[in-house]
Amino acid sequence: MRHTLSVLVENNPGVLARVAGLFSRRGYNIDSLAVGRTENPDISRMTIVVEGDDRVLEQVVKQLRKLVDVIKVQDITSEQYVSRELLLLKVHADSNTRGEIMQIVEIFRARIVDIGPKTLTIEATGDEDKIEAIENALRPFGIKELVRTGKIALLRGSRTSNINGVKEEE
């Protein structure tokens, strides 16, 4: 099963290497990892999507918590949360297909952000399903380049997962 972890880390050099190294050396599979600064410039948030059964996930969470630079680890998979990915996609487009592509972009509430003689560059945000869908919809036209950010997520409502209080341990 795929789990979404929301991880607060010290914004120290090397922290990404510590986290990524932990996953590789213990044989855990990362589906995606997105990292950036939070409202507090000393702290970054990583949103990690990881594949594994409950036993593996328990170990992933515990091993992450052991890292001194990791402040808080939350498995939000079963929580109510909002998640987004950003997609930039360069698709082949000529005068015959341009109109159809623009319709697809409209349907997905995506945007055209650049235009070339034979290409369109499209920006889309959404959850994973939507991003998959738009990618599939545009594939027949010939995708020339594509980049995705990986998932970022926040809990819904007024609940937060910031650093108030200590790291949750068993």
Binding site: V9, D69, I163
Partner: peptide, 12 residues
Amino acid sequence: EIRGYKPNLKGH
């Protein structure tokens, strides 16, 4: 004080 390092010493 290290906010990411708080060993739990007292058993539940």
